[in-house]
């Protein structure tokens, strides 16, 4: 499917319609005041009707909301891959493979902890590129070795195979999970080059931002906790914010790390308010939310500068992910009895 003409017009029209159907800020304000069953009932009257009805008999409360959200997300993102053709498919699939990574990780963890495949299945988000039949086969295998063998047609096969030796020696899942993440991020920018203008240049810029923010997040966490881990092992290549040596140096000095981000030409302005907060505040959560909001806003700007391109799809994907995460945060927050203002702090609202 990756050769031939692409059809951005068609995909754009559909995506924009769905974008418009997402929850508005007022809806969140309403949801914050509801309990889990209220939220489920509210969702039943919207977009999520089919999922809530399908799962309503088996689950209840927050679990019902969570699984319905996952399933709905998977449905919409799967549609995106279904509609798009050619170049557009390639660009969308690059980003959506992150759900493949999530699914494979979940399945491997399930095998490792000997969880029944039914339970694992509930936690999958079938939005990636790996098709359903492969995932079903993955759910049936009993050993990690067989699972890797099942993936032999995908881009994760080689890296997993390499990491498998280390796994056998240490018995820890970390090398396998790192291999998956690495394969995903390396593929994200592979053979896209550095286009200078047009929507694709902005798409590359966005993917770079994704990598930069991931690096920044990891570095901040390491600097914050002072954990004795090798930062180079978690460094992801391809971003513009850090080089590997810079990152290793900065991790030891928290203030300098924040200044480094603030000084960067590309992100300094957009994130300035978030960075001031970060200097003073105690928690990273606020900063991470600011990062996400900045990405979201950026993607929105892109989709109006280049109406018929991959940008609109990208902005929809981000907005949808945000919606799912917000609803989940509200439901979980209500469940553990957080106050309304505390939950509001957890939400990413533009």
């Amino acid at each position: 499917m990756s050769i031939g003409a692409s059809n951005p017009e068609y995909v754009n029209a559909r995506v924009r319609a769905r974008r418009a159907a997402l929850f508005a800020d007022e809806d969140y304000r309403k949801l914050i005041r509801m309990g889990p069953s209220g939220i489920a009932r509210f969702m039943e009257e919207t977009e999520y009707e089919r999922e809530i009805n399908a799962l309503g008999a088996r689950f209840s409360g927050v679990d019902l909301i969570e699984y319905a959200l996952n399933r709905n997300l998977a449905k919409h993102f799967h549609d995106l891959l279904d509609w798009s053709e050619g170049r557009l498919y390639d660009l969308i699939a690059r980003y959506l493979r992150k759900f493949d990574v999530w699914n494979v990780k979940t399945i491997i963890r399930g095998i490792y902890t000997e969880t029944s495949s039914d339970e694992v299945q509930n936690d999958l988000i079938r939005a990636g590129e790996i098709d359903d039949s492969t995932i079903d086969r993955l759910l049936e295998v009993d050993t990690i070795e067989d699972a890797i063998e099942t993936l032999n047609a995908t881009m994760f096969y080689e890296p997993l195979l390499e990491a498998f030796d280390t796994y056998e020696q240490t018995g820890a899942l970390v090398p396998l999970e790192n291999a998956l993440d690495r394969a995903f991020y390396e593929n994200l920018l592979a053979d896209l080059g550095r286009p200078q203008e047009g929507p694709e240049a902005l798409y590359v810029e966005f993917l770079e931002a994704e990598i930069d923010f991931r690096n920044a997040r990891n570095a901040l966490r390491l600097a914050r906790t002072g954990a004795d881990l090798d930062p180079a092992a978690y460094y992801i290549d391809g971003g513009v914010l850090f080089t590997e040596s810079e990152l290793s140096r900065l991790v030891t000095d928290y203030d300098e790390l924040v200044s480094h981000i603030a000084d960067s030409r590309r992100y300094g302005d957009t994130l300035s308010s978030a960075l001031t907060q970060l200097r003073e505040a105690e928690s990273l959560i606020q900063f991470e939310h600011a990062l996400e909001a900045a990405l979201l806003e950026y993607a929105d700007t892109l989709s109006s500068s280049y109406p018929v391109s991959v940008s609109a799809v990208l902005s929809y994907i981000l907005a949808k992910e945000r919606e799912v995460e917000n609803i989940r945060a509200i439901a979980r927050g209500r469940e553990v009895g957080l106050s309304e203002s505390e939950i509001e702090d957890e939400l990413v609202i533009l």
Binding site: N7, E9, Y10, V11, N12, A13, R14, A17, R18, W83, V308
Partner: peptide, 12 residues
């Protein structure tokens, strides 16, 4: 272009 966008909008 317009036709495929129109069909997309109609599908939604």
């Amino acid at each position: 272009g317009i036709g495929s966008a129109a069909v997309g909008a109609m599908a939604e």
